[in-house]
């Protein structure tokens, strides 16, 4: 999987759960700080990545990933 593919999965999922197509998300966006973002959305995103990328996060691992690029890095390491 390429970084762009992982990036698209994450960004699309965030836009989907927040029902907001117009929001700006870049590599340095801190996901937890997005307005309206809550722990339920976070589980949602984690599970989506697990299913779509065929990976597993350890308990507590996903919470450590702050920015979009942190997520892409970690997912990238796990799939490749």
């Amino acid at each position: 999987m390429t970084r762009t593919e992982i990036n698209d999965i994450i960004v699309n999922e965030i836009k989907k759960v927040l029902e907001n197509d117009t929001m700006e998300i870049n590599a340095e966006t801190v996901i937890q700080d997005i307005p309206e973002w809550d722990s339920l959305n976070n589980v949602d995103l984690e599970m989506t990545l697990e299913t779509e990328c065929g990976i597993d996060f350890e308990v507590g691992e996903f919470e450590e990933l702050k920015t979009l690029s942190d997520m892409i890095d970690t997912v990238g390491k796990k799939v490749n």
Binding site: V43, E46, M47, V59
Partner: peptide, 20 residues
Amino acid sequence: LTRFITTYIFKPFLKALGKV
């Protein structure tokens, strides 16, 4: 505390329930 219960109780419990 919220961080603890979300990470170590809520999420593992929810995942254990199967498809979310």
